[in-house]
Amino acid sequence: MSYGYVALAAVLLICVIALPLAVALVGGATHYGEVFSDRELGKVAFNTAAFAFASVSLEMCLGLLFAIVLHQTFLLRGIVRAIALIPWALPTAVMAMSWKWIFNDSYGVANDLAIRLSLVGHGIAWLGRPGAAFAAIVLADVWKTTPFVTIILLAGLQSIPRDLYDAMSIDGAGPLQRFRLVTLPLLRPSIALALTFRLIQAIGIFDLVRVMTGGGPADSTKTVALYIYDVLISYGMPEYGAALTGVVALATFLVAATFGALARGRARA
């Protein structure tokens, strides 16, 4: 009797996951060879890796810093914690539009500030220069997703018993040693979790880049997801797109799992 319900769910899963996956794998089967000789893929993979490395490492560092600050007791802590989450709660496309305006060369806030502070003499076309465009995208992503890392690490910090810090103080540790000997090791599971999620999201980044630069200038910010979109929609090659997606998904999984496991490290013992 109860198996009936499971069967229903199983049929549903087969229809929406297993069948499309099988079709994609079989359909793309003849194209897997092409994936590994695709020069453009190599280029966008490099862009994606650079973006993921830059944004995720900045987010992890800032997220840890913010989590530690928000873990302290201070006036209006609840409100400050809520405010800190706002960037993450915004829809990416909307906040990407805002950042695009901020970095607009003629009427953006970024140039206005830079000129007033005399950092530059005239406006910079932030999104029109390869290096600057990359930096702008990283900055926007860090602004948006640091709160996500913060909240996971804050939850991790809150789960560390106060007694352990007291015991470590009495054992002779100062604040830095307590951080190294208590906080960091006990935070490892949370760090691993945040890192895994962030890597998967960063490697698959699409909407932010699509809105801010469209992959430009000259494909310098084009990520793997944007490339797959082009292959599928612009170039009209669904089978190659399927093969590409399969390989990228597997690679994403491997990278995230590897780094996640490294971060978790000894905590598994």
């Binding site: 018993p161 007694d163 352990l164 007291d166 015991a167 470590m168 208590v182 006990l186 905590a267």
Partner: peptide, 12 residues
């Protein structure tokens, strides 16, 4: 030296 009710042993 202090002994805590929870023992406060470092779990890692």
């Amino acid at each position: 030296a202090m002994v805590f009710q929870s023992y406060a042993l470092y779990p890692h």
